[in-house]
């Protein structure tokens, strides 16, 4: 498994790199700072880019591969930039029992990505999360901070139709604005 370098553009890496020294300066330069630094970097950028991992390694005098190994060990760290729409599927006990894995699989197949990944067009990212706190609505998905209860495969389809309609609408509005202006 190598990191998804193709998803992050050079400009983005440059922008991330420019902000890193300030983040690093808050932590002592020792091995024990590795996880807090990774958390801070992810807190700022929402994910760990390959460039950021390399910079962290350089700062702590570790090899990039070691940093990568530590980061992948923890579920908390993401290696893909967040998509425009963030989809989280609950895998807590109640949702699991109610077939949450089927819902997740539906999203996986529809988007052709795995949990923790982002579609190449950066529109959608998919994540599996533990309980979101509304077990009575199981199985639950959270789409852009909007909780959808009693998920069904048909609702997955409906969701993407909605997004499609929304995108069309935005496109038309933009065109209308352009022709008006």
């Amino acid at each position: 498994m190598t990191a998804p370098e193709h998803l992050v553009t050079e400009e983005e890496e440059k922008a991330i790199k420019a902000e890193l020294p300030e983040i690093f300066s808050r932590f002592p330069r020792e091995r024990g700072s590795l996880i807090p630094i990774l958390q801070a970097v992810q807190g700022r950028f929402k994910f760990l880019s390959p460039g950021a991992i390399r910079e962290v390694a350089k700062y702590l005098d570790l090899s990039s591969s070691e940093v990568y190994g530590v980061a992948t060990f923890y579920n908390q760290f993401r290696f893909h930039p967040p998509g425009k729409h963030e989809i989280k599927v609950c895998m807590g006990t109640a949702c699991h029992v109610a077939g949450g894995d089927i819902i997740l699989e539906n999203f996986e197949r529809k988007l052709n990505i795995k949990p923790g990944e982002t579609t190449p067009d950066r529109e959608y990212s998919l994540e599996r999360v533990a309980c979101v706190g509304c077990c009575a609505l199981a199985p639950v998905a959270v789409v852009d901070d909007h909780v959808i209860g009693y998920m069904q495969p048909s609702k997955v389809e409906g969701l993407f139709v909605q997004f499609e309609v929304q995108r069309e609408k935005e496109k038309r509005e933009k065109q209308a604005k352009e022709s008006a202006g």
């Binding site: 570790l62 090899s63 591969s65 992948t72 060990f73």
Partner: peptide, 13 residues
């Protein structure tokens, strides 16, 4: 081989 800075690592868990 790389003086304590390996290129290979264990990933995930």
């Amino acid at each position: 081989q790389n003086e304590g800075k390996p290129l290979l690592t264990f990933a995930r868990r």
